[in-house]
Design a protein around this nucleic acid. Structure first.
Length: 359
DNA sequence: ATCATCACG
DNA sequence: ACGTACGTGATGATA
């Protein structure tokens, strides 16, 4: 079940046809293919999906993380500061930026991370940071107004793009996908696939979106133009991302470069912003000689282990992340909002629990 | 070492 | 007409 090559043999025997092929000519057997088969009533797909999910969680997390724990059951990651083209950090050995959370069973793995005695875990998460960065960069009046008034951004996008006032959950879901697509350097084909609509329909959505948000379209066009002229694109803080192949004659290479030219300044500005916040928070922790520790970063989220007697400090962290972070750049008017997502407590185990097994 | 897959933002 | 969403790292299978 872990071998696409062997699954291809099985599928052929069962006369299950998969049109998408890997480079080597085997069937693609990834989640989207297997879910499609599942929807066609092919039961074996369900079982493979289930097995793949547990297999992934076991090999990458349950089993591997236990091996990374030190004598005190603490796990230490490496945060790499120069491994990405946009300015993000990455985390390795082990990667602590991709601990499961999306699935129910995945949440149980995350729940295994607990605070030390006398501490609580606090997670502070920038809400919609990349859309706010985009808004800052292009000063789109409608987007600005929405963020200023704390309006549900996906709902307001839905109202504008679909030209109606009453928005149902499905409209909102689609608008959310469109908003994400915008940040990634949208294409009609990619959007159509995500939304399960025709290319033609997706194309209309995009045209309508840019009609309503002309500043966003202009910002993206100028990002691509600047990249073509200079070979790099600068984000709000002046960080340069070098964009190779931006003038390539190969359509595929060039298109990819253009999407990167659009996405890199947005993703990169958000990365630089949170790093500035991290430095300011670290300075404050040292100045006040706190026991509280800043223990992890996940792109738009900071995780703290806060001492029980220092919980007031959370207010200061919020103030730094929302307000002070931009004080040095006076022409920016970012309206940052935080979500304090989770407060997790837990008794630290005095003895190692050993390896957790699902089977 | 590379590929396909899948975990996260 | 081309064939696509942006950024990562870890794993098991395979070459």
């Amino acid at each position: 079940m872990a071998s696409p090559k062997q699954l291809t043999v099985i599928f052929k025997k069962l006369e299950i046809n998969v049109s998408k092929k890997t480079k080597a000519g085997d069937f693609q057997t990834n989640v989207s293919v297997l879910e499609q088969l599942e929807s066609e009533g092919i039961e074996i797909a369900t079982h493979i999906l289930q097995w793949r999910q547990y297999s992934k969680l076991h090999s990458t997390y349950t089993s591997s993380l236990a091996d990374h724990a030190d004598k005190g059951d603490r796990i230490h990651s490496t945060f790499n500061i120069a491994s990405t083209i946009t300015g993000r950090l990455s985390s390795s050995e082990p990667n602590l930026q991709n601990i499961p959370i999306r699935s129910e069973v995945g949440k149980k793995i995350r729940a295994a991370f607990i605070a030390d005695n006398h501490f609580k875990l606090y997670s502070l998460d920038y809400s919609q940071i990349e859309l706010r960065i985009l808004c800052e960069a292009c000063q789109d009046p409608i987007l600005l107004e929405s963020f200023k008034n704390n309006i549900d951004i996906h709902e307001s996008t839905a109202q504008l793009v679909f030209n109606k006032k009453d928005i149902n959950p499905d409209d909102r879901r689609m608008a959310k996908i469109i908003n994400f697509g915008i940040i990634y350097g949208i294409s009609a084909f990619g959007l159509a696939k995500q939304l399960s609509v025709s290319n033609q329909e997706a194309k209309l959505f995009i045209e309508n979106y840019f009609k309503k948000f002309p500043n966003i379209e202009n910002f993206m066009k100028s990002s691509v133009e600047n990249s073509k002229k200079n070979g790099y694109i600068e984000n709000l803080f002046g960080r340069k991302s070098f964009i190779k192949n931006i003038n390539s004659k190969n359509f595929m290479l060039r298109s990819y470069a253009e999407r990167l030219a659009i996405n890199a300044p947005i993703q990169g500005s958000a990365s630089d912003l949170i790093k500035i916040a991290m430095i300011k928070i670290d300075t404050e922790i040292k100045k006040q000689k706190l026991k509280t520790r800043m223990i992890s970063q996940v792109h738009d989220e900071l995780l703290f282990e806060v001492h029980n007697k220092e919980e007031k400090f959370i207010e200061e962290i919020i103030n730094i992340m929302e307000k002070k972070v931009m004080k040095s750049l006076s022409n920016l008017i970012l309206l940052l909002r935080l979500i304090v997502v989770a407060v997790r407590t837990g008794q630290r185990l005095t003895k190692s629990p050993g390896r957790i097994r699902f089977f």
